[in-house]
Design a protein around this nucleic acid. Structure first.
Lengths: 158, 158
DNA sequence: AATTATTGCTTGCATAATGCAAGCGATAAT
DNA sequence: ATTATCGCTTGCATTATGCAAGCAATAATT
């Protein structure tokens, strides 16, 4: 269904409207998992390293579906499974994710190697095209790995 | 101060780290106001059309300063005023904001005219360069207007 | 056919974030 | 001396988030 429900908005600014859909700590992570890691089931998301709570996950998937960023359909070969997938509106967020990734990698200590980031800035258009290709062809091979936490010198377990 | 406080992070993924700093409904709006509207004082932000509550605003300005996205300093000519400004880390978020803006304008009914968006997609690099120039030269003339809520047919006041 | 496992959630409850209105101290203008 | 402005803080109600447990539906195993 493509029914437009009139939500009350803070303003007409596109940035504000974006944030009303995506402005929380989880939505864009779910989109990242769908886009670059090939996740598609509820279980897949639970395995993500940020350990989202199941109630929040269910809520976000519902909302993202409601605003047309994610689609959900039952797998025919297994009635338990639901396949989540980005819509075109969803895959169109690729530039946002790429920019966020590059920004943090440049300004914070992340698990992303510099070489990977350099490459991303140089080949931006190519990477975006590749992400879109995978989406279109339902190619689930991950585009990026899970970035591990950067090892701190002298860090200790807890 | 550039002291790095070790925060506990959900993961090493740059996207996740970005969202720990920016993943809420207000932070990026404040950054937008600093970047494209020439806002610099607490009062300015209160005038923004999304009507942020003053306690939230104070909290966000504090946090954004803490993570090095915003700087704050007293105005010499008026001891009451504090001038907020983006740091370089802050202005580096320009691509993210631009992408979010274009994305929403393409997929939602926003107050942004199509012509403006077309222009933004075509002249992306130029617009980013202009935003950075204004930041560098402390040019406060707005880059973009406040987008009004799109007039609905048959809408009524309340 | 009966039992066990897996998937995709929901529910209950504690804690934290947000939103709203009022107020307040410091500085500046009158 | 009085009033206004700025940048907040405080108190309180509402909403969102986080955690653990549990549950219905389907599938796999015995």
């Amino acid at each position: 269904m493509a029914g437009k429900s009139k939500v009350k908005r803070r303003s007409g600014c596109p940035v504000s409207i974006s944030l009303e859909m995506l402005g929380d700590r989880w939505s864009l992570l779910i989109i990242r998992d769908l886009m670059v890691r090939g996740y598609r089931t509820f279980k897949d998301f639970q395995g993500s390293s940020e350990r989202i709570a199941t109630n929040i996950l269910a809520d976000r998937l519902r909302r993202l579906e409601a605003v047309g960023i994610v689609s959900a359909e039952k797998e025919k070969t297994d009635g338990r499974r639901i396949n989540y997938r980005l819509t075109e509106k969803g895959i169109d967020l690729a530039p946002v994710l790429l920019d966020l990734l590059v920004w943090a990698a440049r300004h914070e200590e992340t698990g992303a190697p510099c070489a990977v980031i350099d490459n991303m800035e140089k080949n931006r258009e190519q990477i975006l095209a590749e992400a879109r290709r995978r989406w279109r062809e339902r190619d689930l091979t991950p585009l990026l790995p899970e970035f591990k936490v950067k090892k701190e010198v002298g860090s200790r377990k807890r």
